[in-house]
């Protein structure tokens, strides 16, 4: 085919100005794909026409723009990150758009748009999942901090209580020294003279073996009275209320305590 003859035949100008028949246009479009020279000639003439017409364009009345913008007001979209909003509904009231959606070209664009949207959506999913994980982790960390703080708070409160008891001048202090053979062991009873509440502070006692527990006794008129078990407590442990006593002693008993003290397991004792 003689491409130059074709280009010079006037068909290019006829096509660009919209005067070619459907067959002529289809033929030219097919040839333009095959011969870059034809495409170039089309572009060159189109650009010639565009600049010629644009040169002496006539400004329409100023209010016309606003009028058109108002007419299209409902059709503008918020700026998006997506290239083509595939989910934008095609208004059924516009027949032209319904036709458009049935053309294969439109489907291609919609398919491409849908794919892009899917990818973008997947990206967002990942992004938000990532965010969610990170926030979730942060939340866990905060929760742990909160628990730690609560533990510290509890510890602080009991230590504060211990300090209060130590400083309280109304407390009767009974120091219990180690019995014979256990001279190094020490525990102290703080006996509130107002309320008769008894507190005990373990200065030094061996770790109670498994299944055993230390028990505090008040010796009232020569008879032992259970004053409570020494459990896990920070600082001072609050024991039972003992209205009167002449002596306090600590024995090692089976876990849960005994009715009567096992005297050969006495560790410390002190007279009031």
């Amino acid at each position: 085919m003689d491409v130059n003859a074709y280009i010079e035949s006037g068909i290019i100008e006829t096509y660009v100005l919209g005067l070619a028949s459907a067959e002529e246009a289809a033929e030219l479009e097919a040839l333009a794909v095959q011969y870059p020279g034809i495409k170039q000639a089309v572009d060159a003439f189109a650009s010639l026409i565009q600049s010629n017409i644009s040169e002496d364009g006539i400004t329409p009345p100023a209010e016309l723009k606003q009028q058109i913008m108002d007419a299209l007001e409902d059709e503008f979209e918020e700026p998006k990150m997506v290239i083509i909003p595939a989910e934008t509904p095609v208004p059924v009231s516009q027949p032209a758009k319904v036709v458009q959606i049935t053309t294969p070209g439109a489907w291609r664009y919609i398919a491409v748009a849908a794919s892009i949207l899917l990818v973008v959506s997947a990206g967002f999913n990942y992004f938000y999942y990532d965010k969610y994980s990170s926030v979730s982790n942060d939340y866990e960390a905060l929760l742990n901090n909160q628990k730690t703080l609560q533990a510290y708070q509890t510890k602080y409160n009991s230590l504060q209580q211990t300090v209060n008891i130590f400083q309280d001048s109304a407390m009767h202090v009974v120091k219990m020294g180690g019995v014979k053979g256990r001279e190094g062991d020490v525990a102290t009873v703080y006996w509130d003279t107002r309320t008769k509440d008894v507190y005990v502070y373990v200065n030094k006692l061996p770790q109670a073996p498994t299944g055993k527990q230390y028990q505090l006794w008040a010796i009232v008129d020569g008879k032992p009275v259970d004053a409570g078990l020494i459990g896990d407590c920070d600082g001072v442990c609050k024991m039972k209320n003992i209205p009167t006593a002449q002596m306090f002693a600590v024995t090692l008993e089976k876990e849960g305590g005994s009715q009567q003290p096992t005297f050969d397991q006495m560790y410390v004792a002190g007279k009031i």
């Binding site: 565009q50 017409i53 644009s54 364009g57 006539i58 400004t59 329409p60 016309l64 723009k65 058109i68 913008m69 299209l72 059709e75 503008f76 979209e77 700026p79 998006k80 997506v82 290239i83 083509i84 909003p85 934008t88």
Partner: peptide, 17 residues
């Protein structure tokens, strides 16, 4: 993308021609 400012630009640049 149905952008209003693109349409506005289109109008400003091509309405005369």
């Amino acid at each position: 993308e149905r952008q209003q400012q693109a349409f506005s630009y289109l109008y400003d640049n091509y309405s005369g021609a």
